[in-house]
Computed example of a mutant assay.
Amino acid sequence: MGWVALCLALSLGLLTGCGAGGPDTIDAFVQDTTPDGSRGVIAAAQGDDLVLCEGWGLADDVREVEFGCDTVVDVMSMTKQFTAAAVLKLQMFGELDVSDPIGDYLEGVPEDKQSITIQQLLTHTSGLGDQLGDDDDPITRDELVAAAMDSPLQFEPGTYAYSNLGYSLLAAIVEIASGDGYEQFLAEHLFAPSEMASTGYVLPDWTAHDVAVEYDQGSGAQGSPLDHEWADDGPWWNLRGNGGLLSTARDMYRWHLALLGNDILDENAKGQLFEPRVREEPDDTHYGYGWVITEHEDQPLAWHNGGNAHSYGELARTTDGGAFVFWSSTQARSESGEWDFEELGPTLTEGALSRLL
């Protein structure tokens, strides 16, 4: 069910549990919506008030660890908003401008890519392909930049086409413009000021009990993100900047709080982050900087999802900060096909939002 159809169903009360409701109904809604045998975590806030932060099912079957508000999960492509925020933070520092061509920061930019700007990387309009290989392929920053410059453009710059590669190049630009590592810059300028001590690639002090194991559709354990064959300082560069950050539901709520204020990003930067810029065909949605911009109950909504072979999750907040929802499941689907969180996701996200507004 798409966003428009789902909103109509919600407004007409066609979905179980839909209709008017306050924060006290969210917990029951989540219990009714999350299928038996599934697992995950959800946080919901009304303004700055955290009204729900809880898990369901087991984060680790062998250790019998239950999912909770502080369970660490892969936020997958929701990483992109943090990369976009880092770029805007550097713009606030005067270290770059989103209108700058990428050749101001990256070496070896050929003629066909010299017109590409940072903003086009942010909005998936660079013309670059989606990715250069598998997430775990051992490729360094300089190797990725060189390969990207050698790759043929898939579209004329200015055309929307989702590109994980573009966000990896943004992570490289963050490093080059700041002189810091990508994760180090995020940790110092975004995460630490937001009190997000459990968000990052390798810097947080996690234990194996903290991090959820991912499961295939047959409930077979596939290891946790800590088991990935990463470089010493985080994922290889096909993933860095576009995905793979680890966080908790509580930390994602803390990021929501940070976006309510102006200490991390000022009003101008937040306005740029949430401005609907490029339409995503065929949907009636637009891409901003690391966020999909749409509407919910006539209010501007910033949204993004993330998924890998085993996990799936979504993040949504009204752009004024009046409502916030984050959830993630480390088992995206069941073996029987009875449930699939990629299909269930809009119901869970929009239903929770409707109980906050």
Score class of each variant (00 low, 15 high):
residue 3 W to N: 11
residue 4 V to R: 14
residue 10 L to M: 09
residue 12 L to N: 12
residue 13 G to Q: 08
residue 15 L to W: 13
residue 24 D to P: 00
residue 25 T to L: 10
residue 25 T to E: 14
residue 28 A to T: 14
residue 30 V to Q: 02
residue 31 Q to M: 03
residue 34 T to K: 01
residue 36 D to C: 00
residue 36 D to A: 15
residue 41 V to K: 00
residue 48 D to R: 08
residue 50 L to H: 04
residue 54 E to H: 14
residue 61 D to M: 09
residue 63 R to D: 14
residue 68 G to D: 15
residue 73 V to C: 09
residue 74 D to E: 14
residue 75 V to A: 06
residue 76 M to F: 08
residue 80 K to P: 09
residue 80 K to Q: 13
residue 85 A to T: 14
residue 88 L to K: 04
residue 91 Q to M: 13
residue 93 F to A: 15
residue 95 E to Y: 10
residue 96 L to W: 07
residue 102 I to G: 03
residue 102 I to D: 03
residue 106 L to P: 11
residue 106 L to E: 12
residue 109 V to I: 14
residue 111 E to T: 14
residue 112 D to I: 04
residue 119 Q to W: 02
residue 125 T to D: 11
residue 127 G to I: 02
residue 130 D to R: 14
residue 136 D to W: 08
residue 137 D to C: 03
residue 138 P to S: 04
residue 139 I to C: 02
residue 140 T to I: 07
residue 141 R to C: 13
residue 143 E to Y: 09
residue 159 T to K: 03
residue 160 Y to N: 04
residue 160 Y to E: 04
residue 169 L to W: 12
residue 169 L to Y: 10
residue 170 L to C: 11
residue 170 L to T: 03
residue 172 A to D: 09
residue 174 V to N: 10
residue 177 A to L: 05
residue 178 S to A: 10
residue 178 S to H: 06
residue 180 D to K: 13
residue 180 D to W: 08
residue 182 Y to Q: 05
residue 182 Y to L: 07
residue 186 L to G: 04
residue 189 H to M: 04
residue 193 P to F: 12
residue 193 P to Y: 10
residue 194 S to D: 07
residue 200 G to R: 04
residue 200 G to C: 04
residue 202 V to K: 11
residue 203 L to R: 12
residue 208 A to D: 15
residue 210 D to S: 05
residue 212 A to C: 12
residue 215 Y to I: 01
residue 217 Q to T: 08
residue 222 Q to D: 04
residue 223 G to K: 05
residue 228 H to W: 13
residue 234 G to P: 05
residue 247 S to Y: 06
residue 247 S to H: 07
residue 249 A to M: 08
residue 257 L to M: 13
residue 258 A to G: 12
residue 263 D to S: 15
residue 265 L to T: 12
residue 265 L to W: 01
residue 270 K to S: 11
residue 271 G to R: 06
residue 273 L to H: 03
residue 277 R to C: 11
residue 278 V to C: 06
residue 279 R to C: 06
residue 286 H to P: 00
residue 287 Y to N: 07
residue 288 G to T: 02
residue 288 G to N: 13
residue 289 Y to A: 01
residue 291 W to M: 13
residue 292 V to T: 14
residue 295 E to W: 07
residue 296 H to K: 00
residue 305 N to E: 10
residue 309 A to W: 09
residue 312 Y to L: 12
residue 313 G to R: 01
residue 313 G to E: 02
residue 317 R to I: 01
residue 319 T to C: 05
residue 321 G to R: 05
residue 324 F to R: 00
residue 324 F to I: 06
residue 325 V to T: 02
residue 326 F to A: 08
residue 327 W to C: 01
residue 328 S to G: 02
residue 329 S to N: 09
residue 332 A to R: 15
residue 334 S to K: 01
residue 335 E to L: 14
residue 337 G to W: 11
residue 346 P to K: 02
residue 348 L to A: 11
residue 352 A to M: 14
residue 355 R to V: 00
